[in-house]
Nucleic acid binder design. Sequence first.
RNA 1: GUCCGCAUAGCUCAGUUGGUUAGAGCGCCUGACUGUGGCUCAGGAGGCCGCGGGUUCGAGUCCCGCUGCGGACCCCA
Length: 449
Amino acid sequence: MAKIQPRSFKGTRDFTPREMIPREALIDSIKSVFRLYGFSPLETPALEMLEVLSGKYGDEGEKLLYKLDYKNDKPRDRVALRYDLTVPLARVVASNPDWPMPFKRYQVQPVWRADKPQPHQGRFREFYQCDVDTIGAPEGIADAEIIALTVQMIRGLGFDEGDRTAVVQLNHRKLLEGLCTFAGLKKEQLSGFTRILDKLDKIGRDAVFKELGDLGVTDNHLEALGEVLAIDNTNVETLQALRERLAGIETAQEGIDSLFAILDYLSHLDVPVEAVNINPNLARGLDYYTGAVFETTLPRQPHIGSLTGGGRYDELIALYSGRDLPAVGTTIGLDRIFAAMEQLGMVDTGVGSVTRALIAAYSKEEIPAALNVLKAFRAAGLPSELFPTAGKLKKPFSYADKQGIPFVAVIGPDEAADPQNLKVSLKQLAKSEQAVVTVAEAIATMLDE
RNA sequence: GUCCGCAUAGCUCAGUUGGUUAGAGCGCCUGACUGUGGCUCAGGAGGCCGCGGGUUCGAGUCCCGCUGCGGACCCCA
């Protein structure tokens, strides 16, 4: 039989134990923060009806949907791989109108996008999202809680100083609408306007102004807009300055009021002021956002895209149920965070096994005794394994060394001499220390480490 | 979707103006070391030189196409 190439689909990855061990620790820590804020777990299927997903993500997003192609299917029976976790949530909530509100859920599952993968930027076709959302709570506290949770989690992971400082950028859709009006544009031009504005930090003011000019913004408007966007102060000062500059534009004032309120709640939650940045040019591409929008960036690592992204979407659920339900939430980009941590040397990939103790039998005669030791270790809660072949102690020792297993327990004729009082030669590899001890003593030593 | 670069051992790479049996380091296996990892030494296995075509007496090396990978843009987690 011809050998089949062991290729995998572009943009997908295998996670080896060396990667999965720190990755699972990361997931556990994310979930524990979610729970701490009172969110409960939810899972939804990988496959969704195409009509449920279609039209929610903007023109760019629509192209990235993985649509499954079946023969003889009817258009309304078509399915696609889920693109995010927010739309499936909206579908679940819309189909369970009797649930008490607010509904607070977290969800950690993979999503798929037919993008061009760029691993260095933390961009893949299959990747995990960790979403938290509060459904049925009006703008204000719930928004601040999501931001506070994001800050606590990201900083708790170590993104809190130097090159790994993370900042939550915060803006409001209504402020963006107001800026659009301020620039002399019509409401239909909002998405084009915000898309250009969003590039400000990347391509610079001049390039943005050129594109805005092409969109139809006059020179006078450009000049005024330039003055507004140049405001860069503390968050409160920035908002105050915007309030004055945008006097008379009602939507902008509403957005500014909302941001003031959120900042106030954040200060009561003891969120450090430097962890959040009011950023009037932050856009967010998804079409469904209606209020506050936010994302987490690493200002010193601009090639890595946003670590988290979210916002308020008060009109999405009504698309499925006809009932208005306000909602706010965010996505924690697990794979982005992991990629950033790897590049910043924050991940230990030196351990290839979860085993704490490897038991090695000197000869076949000691295997029954070794199995008894194995039972005792496991009963004490120590992840342990017996090396599958007896003799040649070099093999189990070399194996333990390569896998990063900290302890090897050797059992030979001497240690097994008294079946009523089994002993092992317990060696701690990192210290090169070895002693003949009873099984109980070995367990105590290892639990102590 | 647009642009640029790269493709030789499991990994990182070297390979002269095109010239005979294709190299190193790391890793892997065996032994020195018949109760013990790392360090050292000795030996060994492992290559359709990405795929297809072209130029040439001769191609890992030059040309074209394809595929894959990497990077930038767009967009995003």
